[in-house]
């Protein structure tokens, strides 16, 4: 209770990563990923990649295919979600969606850091 919230967080076990969930941290992660991707795409040209199908011969096929499918899946899920999402009480009161997990099964403790 003595220190400011920031110093309190510093003493937490996972403090090495502190800040990764800020906007700045996100940007850094994104840029790192971009660099890694570029590096891997370049590495793909250093040797001949053996595949089973012709499509795999396309340059960095796995890279752009993965990228496009991932974006496509995200958008598809967003659209389907419009139709399938419901409130938690949809199946009535006697449903595990609505109830809290019983405390007897838990060991809820706050971090002492």
């Amino acid at each position: 209770m003595t220190g400011s919230p920031e110093t309190q967080s510093k003493s937490m076990p996972g403090s090495i990563l502190l800040g990764i969930d800020t906007a700045r941290g996100g940007r850094i992660v994104t840029w790192c990923l971009l660099l890694i991707c570029a590096g891997l795409a370049a590495a793909g040209f250093t040797g001949h990649l053996h595949g089973y199908f012709e499509i795999e011969e396309l340059p960095a096929f796995y890279g752009w295919f993965g990228f496009l499918v991932a974006i496509g899946l995200g958008i598809a899920a967003k659209i389907i979600g419009i139709f399938l999402k419901r409130k938690e009480d949809y199946y009535g009161a006697g449903s595990t969606n609505l109830e809290e997990h019983p405390a007897s099964d838990l060991g809820m403790e706050a971090s002492d850091a």
């Binding site: 992660v29 891997l40 793909g44 096929f61 796995y62 890279g63 752009w64 990228f67 991932a70 995200g74």
Partner: peptide, 18 residues
């Protein structure tokens, strides 16, 4: 190499999508 490419690019896509 291709598997690494796949994972890295999907991660990139995820970062951008978020």
């Amino acid at each position: 190499i291709v598997q690494l490419q796949l994972v890295a690019f999907v991660a990139l896509a995820f970062a951008l999508a978020v």
